[in-house]
Write a protein that binds this DNA or RNA. Sequence first.
DNA 1: TCCACGTTTCAATAATCCTTGAAATGTTGA
DNA 2: TCAACATTTCAAGGATTATTGAAACGTGGA
Lengths: 116, 116
Amino acid sequence: MDERQALIAFGALSQETRLRLLRLLVVAGPQGIAAGSLAEQVEVSPSNVSFHLKELERAGLVTARRDARSIVYSAEYDALSGLIRFLMEDCCSGRPEICAPALAAPCCRPGEGIRQ
Amino acid sequence: MDERQALIAFGALSQETRLRLLRLLVVAGPQGIAAGSLAEQVEVSPSNVSFHLKELERAGLVTARRDARSIVYSAEYDALSGLIRFLMEDCCSGRPEICAPALAAPCCRPGEGIRQ
DNA sequence: TCCACGTTTCAATAATCCTTGAAATGTTGA
DNA sequence: TCAACATTTCAAGGATTATTGAAACGTGGA
């Protein structure tokens, strides 16, 4: 992930509806969720959800595929990893005192697995 | 770091000048850098730098202290850790396949220390 | 006390982003 | 082919954010 892309990704995550969309897509996994279903779940209009999904797509955080009449979105795990990594190494500039506490995140401690 | 704060922080990081300011402050460490010096280094006007520093401060990513005539800013490492952690556990929702690749970041592998 | 310095605040403008609803697109089944 | 469906696109308006320069503020030294 280069800086330009990271800037766009941070912008994408800075909006509540988009953050909620992304979270739904992350837990949904590779199977993804159709745009209409996303619109229902986050309770915003289809056209507005479409607008925000486009923005997430531009940031590389989600991808779209057509499935019959629906357009199914799914999270791009690589982009998310890349963004975390950008924060860690590029932004934190080799200061372990920043990264170290983050590594205590339950989902990331080896052998612990899933959160909650 | 709660969601509200994370949204503000992502917004703060989504602007080029602010990202550059934060990076300078991260490498500067607890000693910090005066506003005027930051303005020179990023080559924007004092009033504009002040505007962006305020935004970073609102996001909790930096703090300010007065030192004689200068106002010295420094990075809030805890907030950065918190943001990384937010991405990992809240956003990635317990999917190790997202976090795992991020852990390969050089600065974060135990025993490796500083990047570059 | 007064002046110069470093910084912030303010007001105005420009730029970007978000929301809305209507119209357009592509898809499926009858 | 036609109608209904799922979604996107577009244009318009409102809201937020960024930039600029001038004025105000607090500080330290003469």
